[in-house]
Design a protein around this nucleic acid. Sequence first.
DNA 1: GCGACAG
DNA 2: ATCTTGTCGC
Length: 233
Amino acid sequence: MSDQPPATPSAVHDWNLDPTAAVQLQKALRERIALTPLAKSVRLIGGADISFNMYSDIFHAAIVVLDYRSMEVVDSAYFTQTVTFPYIPGLLSFREIPTLLRAWEKLEQKPDVVMVDGHGIAHPRRMGIATHFGLVTGVPTLGCAKKILTGKYREPGTERGEASPILDGHETIGYALRSKRNVKPIFVSPGHLLDLEGALEIARHCVLKHKLPEPTRLAHLMVNDYRRSANAG
DNA sequence: GCGACAG
DNA sequence: ATCTTGTCGC
C-alpha cells in the first residue's frame, strides 16, 4: 500500500533550529502561502492554544473542535511536552507549533479550518503562527490575536462587528475587529488556504458573547483547566 | 541609533 | 504566557 498524496502539499521540516535559521526558513516558506478563498464550506472549526506555568518550559497544547453553526465543542485533544525554543517576537511558531502538532495528530475529527491564538500573515515576514501551522498541516487557518505585532490600523468604529484594515505600507495584512461594543479590537488575519475576507467573516461568525471568538476562547479555557489539573496531580 | 515587539 | 479581587461601566 502506498500513501495517498495530501490534498495540499504540506511543509514538513526540522524544528530544531536556531533563531537565525528560523528566520531564513520563514523567508523560504512564505513563497508557499496561498491566500485563496476557502475551498469548501465550514462544518467544523478548530481552536488552538498553548498554556504553561510561569518560568516553566513544560508546554500544554489544546486543539478543540467546534460545530461551526452551533459553536458547541464536539472534540478536543491535548499534548504536553518540554520546549526549548525561546520566545522571540516574530518566531512564536517555532516555540509553540511542535506541541500543537502533537495535539493535532490526536484529534479524531479534523476541522475544516483552524483558528490559532496569534497572527497569520499580519507578521513582518507574513509567517505568523497561524500561517505556519496551515503550511505544515495543509489545513486552512486564520490567526486571531489580542495584540498587534506589525502594521498600522485606524481605530475601528465602536459598534460590534466594525473592522478596519491592518496596513503594512499599502498592503492590507489583516483587520482590527471590534468584537464587542466599546471594547478594544482583536486582530484577525488569514493564515493559509484562506483569504482576507474569509478570515474576517469567520472571525465575526465565531464571536458570540465575548470579546474573543469561541474557538480560541474555549481552547484557552480548556488548556488552562488541563494544565491546572496536571499541576494538581 | 531608537523604539516596538503575537504568546 | 502566568500570578489574582475587587471594581467600574454598559
